[in-house]
Nucleic acid binder design. Structure first.
Lengths: 341, 341
DNA sequence: CTGTTAGCGCATTCAA
DNA sequence: TTGAATGCGCTAACAG
């Protein structure tokens, strides 16, 4: 590690270039105009000195940190990772930087992470899900910045929403299974007070069964997310043991659906003839395995982009002194009927 | 979005609590001591006012941003995501925050991302891979902060290294295949100037073949990473068409190995009897599919932890005025011989 | 088009 | 154990 040296500041650049600090600042931020001559001179000096602007100092002065906080349950999940990609792409185009936090699928953890991240004075916050602690909500309200809740359709939104109904998603999947002739449908989900998205999908399953006049509910709840793939295998075995008549199993996630499908291979249970399998999320493994798993696809990348655009927009309006009204953006989903149903 | 209100500062807290700003600052940073009475009074006031410290301002003053920059090729990759988890866990315990950047497997993109992120004055940088542009190296050197290169064993390290040899990894896999009796081994990799890790694995394959006296190399290079899972399937078809005698195929990643295995199912080619398959990374899909894929396992989470610990340590030593010598930490790997070989 | 002044919110450094 | 003065690096607001 090289010795910690004194790094050049905007003052050094100004002195060397023979202009004032403000002129350098203007050249850098492109705000206000400067003559081409001055611009060239300043840029050359910056290059010579190897000057690197300090955005934190700039933020302190301008009262815009340029950070957008993004909280996801887990980075190690292709769906959320894609949303993060979408967010990043939009933010980069707008000179903003992402401040990523991981909540481990827990609202308590979310509160802790949020508390830490708010100390960086983000200009906006993008959350996953619509379920938060009371203190989290209070902190967000006090922060006075744009908030976007994603991946859900909260009954009482904090501010903006870019999401979809997890209840409706399950509804649609039951409809799909029903249409393909399945009548003895089971659901394999997760169990956690925090995982309201999983709970919503289970609720959608139950409601849809009733709608179709199917009264016998077969539900197995695995642990808190992220549920290991292995448990999908154990779950399908358990389900067919408890309810041998089951002709279709829908899973809260492609990951466990995949685990179940592979276990069926090992047990030589033909899929979908012995039992149909459906997942959620359109993960790589579900799309490419054999047979390919029927699933629900959400455009996670686009959802991320929309969420980021909402923040960018709100930020611009707030800067212009406009009052910003909360908006709700619905993200479409589609059932991909494939070979396992 | 609530109106942007004036947020309380340390000054407000000081006034309300009837103490000086410094006393509040001391209570907050736990540096220097204060009487229990004062501490209580200050904490109560902070609570009442809903004061949130501004870490950016603190950073400007103390010349320690508390940020550690972390650059990964992609967040949407379980291996890198786990490394990020490891890093985050260690940093959190040390009051540091992660500043994540995605390089899309490109050293040019890395340079751009690095340039942006250095403007936040991180106290350290964790990179993925040992291949960087000359400008990137220069920026890092000028920054005068601790740097850790991971996931590789660079010949000419910038500073610290926490990684493993991608050449050796492939060597070990060839040894494994050879031991299981395979002699007509092919390699399916990626192709990109930037992906030196992939290139190293291919080199390891070639060297190891020679070592075993196997002169016939069968190599297929797919596109730049991230290579879609699908292409693994196309690649195995192509390999068996060009070199029908191939009895084992090793892949640069579990993702493509998985795609190949599933394609073999579709073509009714028994694995490993028609062709053996081996991957890299011990991904979920490889561990749980049927048959389970032989692979190389790296403890990515631990690699992340080690890298972060190296940074934390270097930071502490630098603060104590010590001179820090670059260290190289080797991460072990193991071949998991499973059902596809 | 350019410069001056006055902070942004906090911690370092000294003194009490 | 506590406080006052000072400045971190930058930009908003105004003046010229």
């Amino acid at each position: 590690m090289p010795g910690r040296v004194k790094r050049p500041t905007i003052k050094d650049v100004a002195r060397e270039a023979g202009v004032s600090m403000m002129t350098v600042s203007r050249v850098l931020t492109k705000k206000g105009r400067a003559s081409q001559d001055t611009i060239d001179k300043v840029l050359r000096t910056i290059e010579e000195l190897g000057y690197v602007p300090d955005l934190n100092a700039g933020a302190l002065s301008s009262r815009n940190s340029g950070f957008i906080a993004v909280l996801v349950p887990s980075v190690d999940n292709s769906n959320f990772a894609q949303s993060v990609r979408g967010i990043t792409d939009v933010l980069n185009d707008n000179g903003l930087q992402i401040l990523l936090g991981s909540t481990d699928f827990s609202v308590e953890r979310e509160e802790t992470v949020l508390e830490t991240i708010l100390k960086r004075r983000p200009d906006g916050v993008i959350l996953t899900g619509g379920n938060h602690t009371a203190r989290s909500r209070r902190m967000l309200e006090n922060a006075g910045i744009a908030v976007v809740e994603t991946w859900d359709l909260p009954a009482d939104p904090i501010d903006h929403v870019v999401g979809f109904s997890n209840v409706a998603v399950s509804h649609a999947m039951v409809d799909h299974l029903h249409e393909r002739g399945y009548r003895r449908i089971g659901f394999i989900g997760s169990s956690s007070d925090s995982d309201t998205r999983g709970a919503d999908r289970e609720r959608g399953y139950s409601e849809a069964l009733k709608k179709h006049g199917l009264e016998h509910h077969r539900v197995i709840r695995l642990g808190a997310p992220p549920v290991p793939v292995e448990q999908g295998g154990e779950a399908i075995v358990e389900m067919l043991r408890r309810w041998p008549e089951t002709d279709a199993a829908m899973f809260v996630s492609d990951r466990t659906a995949f685990g179940a499908l592979m276990e069926c291979h090992r047990c030589s249970w033909p899929v979908p003839d012995r039992v149909a399998i459906a997942g959620f999320g359109n993960f790589d493994m579900a799309r490419n395995c054999h047979p390919r798993i029927t699933t629900t696809a959400i455009d996670c990348y686009e959802m991320g982009r929309f969420a980021a655009e909402r923040i960018v927009d709100a930020r611009a309006r707030a800067a212009a002194g406009e009052r910003v009204k909360p908006e709700i953006t619905m993200i479409p989903y589609r059932i991909l009927g494939r070979q396992t149903t």
